[in-house]
Simulated scan of single mutants.
Amino acid sequence: MSLPLAEVVALYLDGRLALRRAVTGDASTTVAMLRHQCWKCGAESTVWDVREATCVGRCGTEADLHRKASTMWAEERPEQDHAVMRAVAMRAGVLGWPTPASIGPRYTQTAKTTYAAFSCPACGAVFGDFPLRSAWMEAAYDDHLNDEATVSHGPNRTKHPHWCHDTGDGLCRARPSGHAAARASVRSTAT
């Protein structure tokens, strides 16, 4: 935010500018989808990749919901989220695409470790992170190979300190709804 100092002071004193520890607002996840053929049995399935997961505060500030694993062979992935998997299955059905692939912990000789891997729903063969990364790069140059789905998570609170500026929709809440009541009930059960 770049405002004259006098305006910043006026907004702050007016209660329309406040330092918040978290962004509170609607959250959504954007998921890219790709048709992928199994190397072993030839069956086609749908694989997906979480591209963006954000919470947009009432003030317009965006915050990442979670950090995507930047390395191959990650033990946990945002693609395993049940809401994401449901959205992919629904979108694949609407498009007439093949069944979504399975995703879960699998051991591979290549990686020599267990990681969250996509596998063929027909024969169970692991697709592998490296071959899938190559498929995603190829699909980036051929628009008809992929599609997107958006998952709405509704109201969310994500830790992200920021100067919250009310531009007409209000400020991000300082605490989630029911926070004081929950804290009070914890205190009362502890005594």
Rank of each mutant, 00 (worst) to 15 (best):
W97D: 10
H160L: 01
R106H: 14
T150D: 09
M85Y: 05
S70K: 09
R157W: 14
V88R: 05
A140S: 15
S102A: 04
L95D: 11
P98Y: 10
A140D: 15
A92G: 04
G96K: 02
R77I: 00
K112R: 13
T110C: 02
P78E: 06
A87M: 06
C59M: 04
Q109V: 09
C120I: 01
E138F: 15
D143M: 00
V56Y: 08
A74N: 04
C123Y: 07
A135T: 07
A139L: 13
Y115G: 01
E75V: 06
A135S: 15
L95M: 11
F127N: 05
L65R: 14
T150P: 06
P161F: 08
M90V: 09
P98R: 01
T110R: 10
F118S: 02
V94I: 11
Y107N: 02
G93D: 13
D64L: 11
G124W: 03
V50Y: 10
A63H: 03
E52W: 12
T150H: 08
P161I: 03
R133C: 09
C120Y: 06
E62I: 00
F130N: 09
W136P: 14
P78K: 00
T99Y: 01
P161N: 02
W163Q: 07
C123V: 04
C164F: 12
V84Y: 08
H162P: 13
P131L: 05
G60S: 06
A122G: 03
D147F: 04
S119E: 00
V56M: 11
N146S: 13
A92Q: 02
S134Q: 14
M85F: 07
T114D: 01
A125P: 05
K159N: 07
T158W: 03
N146P: 00
T110M: 09
C123D: 11
A139D: 14
F118M: 01
A125D: 11
P78S: 07
Y107F: 15
P131H: 07
C164M: 08
F118K: 00
A111F: 07
A63M: 03
T71F: 14
A140L: 13
V50G: 08
P98I: 05
D143P: 15
T114N: 00
R91E: 15
F118E: 01
R86S: 15
F127Q: 12
T108H: 04
H144D: 11
H162W: 13
A53M: 13
A63V: 05
V84R: 05
G57D: 08
N156M: 12
P98F: 10
I103N: 05
C120F: 06
A117F: 07
G124D: 01
T167N: 13
T167Q: 15
I103H: 06
A149V: 09
